[in-house]
Amino acid sequence: MKINIEGLEFSYNGKPTLKNMNLKVGKGEFLSIIGPNGSGKTTFLKCMNKILTPKQGSILIDKYDLNKLHREDIAKLVGYIPQAERGAFPTSVFDTVLMGRKPHMKWIPSSKDLEIVSDVIDMMDLSSFSMKNINELSGGQRQKVIIARALAQQPRILLLDEPTSSLDLKHQLEVLEITREQANNDVTVVMSVHDLNLAARYSDKILMMKDGEIFHGGGTDILTPENIEPVYGVSVDVKRDSDQIWIMPKKIACK
């Protein structure tokens, strides 16, 4: 599904957090939102899912106005992977993934729901501990469970909030490979991320945010020292291979 955002404004307790955001994401496109802490990435993602209701502006997914859609209907279309999640009471891996079927099911999960869940668990390589409590898993495994839940939702749009921030190298790649595959299957992906190298490697488009505003947007070619330094306040070297961009931080830039 396409996402079309125009003139979006959001404020927390009267303090503007997002200012005049305009964004278009095409079907099956993988967009990475980058920017320093507090630049509004998470808030922006949450607006795309009506977790937060913006003060102004419009968000269209395909032809539907997000504001006019029911929460249950949005849940059938948009999957969301939060930055950090820890339940008050633990549940098993299977039950957690099954929750992704919630928007689609009535009170008792159907055999189709159960099949989808077991397929996703299988695909994500979680089968060997599907009955374990998620609190007993490692951070990487837990993140995979959360992603599995979003995939069980069978969304057309996937929103990920720093999905790799607490993961080891292997899990980082694993999570992003899975996400990339979703985009290849025409799921629209919007992800906030800190690791610029990963953003460069996996995404089609980059959105740079600073102080609640869009600093720059475009293909991965916008990841240049000239753009990165004013956004992060860090001077970097950028090296380009044939199909890969390498970004190496050098030092904190003087103010």
Partner: peptide, 14 residues
């Protein structure tokens, strides 16, 4: 059940 995973997650699940 959904609420147990956090308010944001629950909202994202409808």
């Amino acid at each position: 059940n959904a609420l147990n995973s956090g308010d944001d997650t629950a909202k994202s699940l409808g």
